[in-house]
Simulated assay, not measured.
Amino acid sequence: MTTVGLLYPGHSAEDDYPRFEVLLDSDIRLPVFHTDIGEDAHRVDALLRMGEAGRLAEGVEELRLAGAESVVWACTSASFVYGWEGAHEQIRTLARAAGLPASSTSFAFTHAVAALGAARVAVAATYPQDVTDLFTAFLKASGAEVVADRASGIVTAAEVGTWGRGEVLELARAGDHPDAEAVLLPDTALHTAAYLPELEELLGKPVLTANQVTVWEGLRLADRRAWAPKLGTLFARRE
């Protein structure tokens, strides 16, 4: 059995992770440990507080007791908001606290983009424009070329968590760009586990979503390969 511990802020789309367990159809376990979201706001000051070391450390003991082999801070915005170097320090601090390999959804995106060999990407974000700009800057710092970014202006994770199939497909379609080799949907508050094949069929290219890359990153850290065609190109077996 492989257990990936997920630190998730608040309650919005954490029910994606049990769905991923079912779709992976294996001995992989993805227990979720909630951190205090503080103020639910896609605003820089609130996101900086949300990602503080003390908040992340709250779930670490439970995570270790659950037998986790790796840990992922399952949040994008409260990672990239610290900038490239600050986000690295956040994860180093988490790894020391947990005594486990650690990462965040922000770095999961950069590693997944590299794994797909996608040089040019488009961002379809739920966030306000200023927060979306910070994610774009983070991707550029990783070496990716961002050919387009779309901001939806949603302030709270709670609202994002209410979005269903129609809103998710429209977000991806509106954020796509002809030059993009992959489209990124960066919010872990957005339900996407049920829509991955449809998203890729709609756009005709790989789609990376926050909860999807979070799971993939945790498995990568645990040195576990998993194949599940229903989870998109990232999890598809390549000869």
Score class of each variant (00 low, 15 high):
E145C: 07
S152I: 05
T156A: 05
L139W: 05
D130Q: 12
T132G: 04
I154P: 00
V146R: 01
T156Y: 06
S152G: 08
G164Y: 03
T162V: 06
T156V: 06
L139I: 10
G161F: 15
S142Q: 02
E167P: 10
A157E: 12
G153K: 12
Y127D: 02
L139V: 09
D133K: 05
F138S: 09
V168I: 10
G164Q: 07
E145Y: 02
E167G: 13
E159A: 08
Y127L: 14
D130H: 12
A151Y: 06
E145N: 10
A158P: 04
E145L: 11
S142M: 05
F135Y: 05
G143W: 01
R165D: 03
G166L: 06
V131E: 05
R165N: 02
F138T: 00
V155Y: 06
A144C: 06
L134P: 02
V168H: 06
T132Q: 08
E159D: 10
G164H: 12
A151K: 03
G153V: 11
A141N: 15
T156E: 09
V147A: 14
A157P: 05
A148M: 03
A144S: 05
F138Q: 01
T136A: 13
T136V: 15
D149A: 07
G164K: 05
I154Q: 10
S142V: 01
P128L: 11
W163S: 02
V131G: 14
T156C: 07
V155A: 05
Y127C: 10
T156W: 03
A157R: 07
A148Y: 06
F135I: 01
T156M: 04
G161P: 08
A141L: 10
A141G: 09
T132A: 05
F138K: 00
A137T: 11
A157Q: 04
W163T: 02
A151R: 06
V168L: 08
G161N: 11
T162M: 15
W163H: 01
V160F: 04
E167A: 15
V160P: 03
V146Y: 01
V168T: 15
E167H: 12
E145S: 13
G153L: 12
A158R: 14
T132R: 05
T162Q: 13
I154G: 03
I154K: 10
T156H: 02
V155H: 02
T162N: 14
E167R: 10
K140N: 12
W163M: 04
A158T: 14
S142F: 04
V155K: 09
T156R: 07
A148D: 04
D149G: 00
Q129N: 15
A148E: 03
L139R: 01
L139M: 11
E145K: 11
T156P: 00
V160E: 13
V168D: 00
